[in-house]
């Protein structure tokens, strides 16, 4: 059984199959891309993994234990971190507070190992070059800066599995490089990452493996190169008659 294993997970809402018997494993230290057209169920799958939705069938195991029925906060304490498509930062709180509140929410035994919180907050902000804005409201940041802040926060909170929902959405091209650099940093630190992304070159640069989702089903799985060259992907994204 993998680090994260998803077994036959289904979600039906009012008779519609949003996810249809989805199964795949993610190994520790792996960076896996999750792609597929809009409405294919990618974000829904993330919501099932973070615990905001409960599957109507199947099970989810994380590090060998069944977390299918755990609450979001319990999953977070077990080490699952999430970066939201719509920026999961607290806009009316300062950057400092944004990091602090995350550190304070850690389980007791982990908090004891942190040492000086102030120092840790400073280091986390410095990692993404935002230490000078520590007292500013997070809502005043640019999209790219928000994303960096959120990833850095998740990284420093001792999370082991990262669910990144479109980390480049709303980020200027200039900052995209910085974001992918940070994800590479996650990989170096041995973290496991699951990324939803539309930017295929971006996926190609950083992912070990890619899973393609369409209409709630896993239709393709392989290395970025394999997937890029497959006919199915072309059909899913551009229809049956590709123009490129």
């Amino acid at each position: 059984m993998g680090f994260l294993s998803i077994r036959e997970v289904s979600l039906a809402i009012q008779g519609h199959m949003i996810l249809d018997h989805v199964s795949f494993d993610v190994n520790q230290g792996e960076v896996v891309g999750l792609i597929g057209p809009n409405g294919s169920g990618k974000t829904t799958l993330f919501n099932l993994l973070s615990g905001f939705l409960a599957p109507t069938g199947g099970s989810i195991h994380f590090r060998g234990s069944d977390i299918t029925n755990c609450s979001p906060s319990v999953r977070a304490q077990k080490g699952i971190g999430r970066v939201f498509q719509n920026f999961g930062i607290f806009r009316d709180m300062t950057l400092e507070e944004n990091i602090l509140v995350a550190l304070e929410a850690l389980p007791h035994e982990q908090k004891k190992l942190l040492g000086d919180m102030k120092f840790l907050v400073h280091r986390t902000l410095a990692m993404v070059g935002l230490e000078k804005s520590a007292k500013k409201k997070a809502g005043a940041l640019s999209g790219g800066q928000m994303r960096l802040l959120e990833i850095a926060r998740t990284l420093k909170c001792g999370k082991d599995l990262f669910l990144l929902d479109e980390p480049t959405a709303g980020v200027s091209p200039k900052m995209t490089g910085q974001v992918s650099g940070l994800i590479a940093e996650l990989k170096r630190e041995g973290k496991t990452v699951l990324i939803i992304e539309h930017d295929l070159p971006f996926i190609g640069r950083i992912c070990d493996r890619v899973i393609v989702l369409d209409v709630g089903k896993v239709v393709l799985e392989g290395t970025p190169d394999e997937v890029k060259q497959s006919k199915e992907l072309q059909e899913i994204y551009f229809g049956a008659d590709p123009t490129t």
Binding site: S71, A76, F90, R91, M93, V101, E104, A105, R153, C157
Partner: peptide
């Protein structure tokens, strides 16, 4: 810390829960 947690839940409850805050 308690107040920060409240504000976090007010501003983005999903993000707060994903950080381990028991909403």
């Amino acid at each position: 810390p308690f107040g920060r947690r409240i504000r976090a839940v007010v501003q983005h409850s999903h993000a707060a829960m994903s950080l381990g805050i028991r909403a």
